[in-house]
Nucleic acid binder design. Sequence first.
DNA 1: CCAGGTTTCTACAACGTTGTAAGCAACGTT
DNA 2: AACGTTGCTTACAACGTTGTAGAAACCTGG
Lengths: 334, 334
Amino acid sequence: MRHRLKDVAERAGVSVKTVSNVVNGYLHVRPDTRARVEEAIAELNYRPNLSARNLRKGRTGVIALAVPELDIPYFAELARHVVTAAAEHGWTVLIDQTGGGPEQERKVAGGIGDHLIDGLILSPLALTAEDLAGLAGMPMVLLGERIDHGPADHVAIDNVAAAHAVTAHLIGLGRRRIAAIGAQRTPEGVSARLRLAGYAAALAEADIGYDERLVAPAPAWHRADGATALRHLLASGVRPDAVFCFNDTLALGALRALHEAGLRVPEDVAVAGFDDIEDGRFSVPTLTTISPDKERIARLAVDLLANRLTGDPEAPPQELTAPHHLIPRESTTP
Amino acid sequence: MRHRLKDVAERAGVSVKTVSNVVNGYLHVRPDTRARVEEAIAELNYRPNLSARNLRKGRTGVIALAVPELDIPYFAELARHVVTAAAEHGWTVLIDQTGGGPEQERKVAGGIGDHLIDGLILSPLALTAEDLAGLAGMPMVLLGERIDHGPADHVAIDNVAAAHAVTAHLIGLGRRRIAAIGAQRTPEGVSARLRLAGYAAALAEADIGYDERLVAPAPAWHRADGATALRHLLASGVRPDAVFCFNDTLALGALRALHEAGLRVPEDVAVAGFDDIEDGRFSVPTLTTISPDKERIARLAVDLLANRLTGDPEAPPQELTAPHHLIPRESTTP
DNA sequence: CCAGGTTTCTACAACGTTGTAAGCAACGTT
DNA sequence: AACGTTGCTTACAACGTTGTAGAAACCTGG
């Protein structure tokens, strides 16, 4: 049922290597020989054994994409773009879920190196520079937050500028009591820190005091966390006139909580998110958000990885920034 | 940097095979030998080369999960469960997007068989029995719709019963003009056909006439399609008092369109979906839906695949049904 | 101390592929 | 006619692993 180069070779009356040459598009094969071989390949429905090829070549043609959770829409959308970009390089993408915990991330990053993949695109939530040090040798590109002094290439958007833009947008609408949802005090929450910084900077620019009570932490960034955070905020007697959520799923949860509290969006409270996931384009109301160019992020990451693999593995790590833009929708402007 | 069995063997002063035996947990290795080998393994940070192992064993330890689109929440959630279930068998899951087109699906199904994967879990949208015939030899489990006379194992829920339950629920609320969104006339739309059948059966049972004008087709099952379908419906002068959408994303789109039309849900129009994706638990209003047991589906599929791989590959195909239940939420019951 | 068994280890040959080096034609050039 | 050149093809040896078969060491009970 399953054929090898040898079977094709016998059928075509040539050597094994000649068949290999045809398969790999080697130039110097006589047209009639090539035709005979191709015919034999077709007849036997021959397919190369990738394990053998990989063993021989030392490359597998597979790269891994490790994200915290596949069913967070942002990562699913990103994954789609990465798969597409990788396909252009002839790579297959192995998608891995880290679960976001440091343990898991470390394990994925380390354990996956079982010679199965050529490189890794990692979207870390909780990884530190130390963890990465153990991975030296595995070509790697990080997505999202920069890990200081990390040894790896890195692609991100300018989180501070983006958060600043959202906050300024809310201020421009006349809002003054702007809550921030999604803060994280853990050292790992780099995204949270940067977005909080942008938020604070925009407030300062507009001479609005930073009110600790308006800043709500969220352990994770799911819908449920957004809803819970906002409920707590309201229960504690704080009454914001706008909410900047550090991602869209948090914002969708917040919308839900506001609805339950009988507050109108955007009349009573304006809401903005971050990520531009598809849900936000159809929610009621539709969600104002920052749209990172996910396609570009994916493409840059894949290209960086390609450079690592074909070029100098010791070259200094690169930091690339992908564009983003603000998309005002109903949740801030009716 | 990268070490092989041979390096470990030299360091431990034993033969290559003995190291292999230790790595594979072979029983008859003297404790002190084992200790020496394990020490050497740790010191060199040895990791087996999977390509070589696969080549030798004829198994890769990788299975593929092919779904139409990763950023459809239902598939993302399903993927998570499949990855979890597969991990228990020691398998890695290669996730593939088919894009849903027949061309693509055929290609994935066929082309992926490059000896890279041991088996395939395929969630087909457009595949026919004929396409599958070409894949004979690749152990495979189908998710979702049954392909008549297909040669593969199959896991699904009882679509007719589920659709019947939703429709009956709407009828029980006193609704009589119940629209169905997501119909597909193409021969491929098996899910659509089954759900439509359940819908029609429930209507018939309640002595409600089947009104062709209330049945709206949808080319795909995205939010945008749901919104568009409902807008057309309303524009054509039809005024339903309930809408059964064939999946949740369609329903979320429909909610959006109803909102834009100024109709209240559920007071003016009740809305129900299918799949129980997370979005529906936080939308405004929350979404009544059918909840298929995704974890069970994933587990059954993986177990079926395991049986194929270890047992008789020629055994007659199995058909398994996973449970589902109706979850009434705000979109039908305030 | 030996026969017979069991445990522990090793050498060798695959698995299917491709890089290397080299062979053999058939050229055109000296 | 002898010579390199070029085009095409082939044999051989890896890549790192594990199954097989068997050798060596170790037991046991006579």
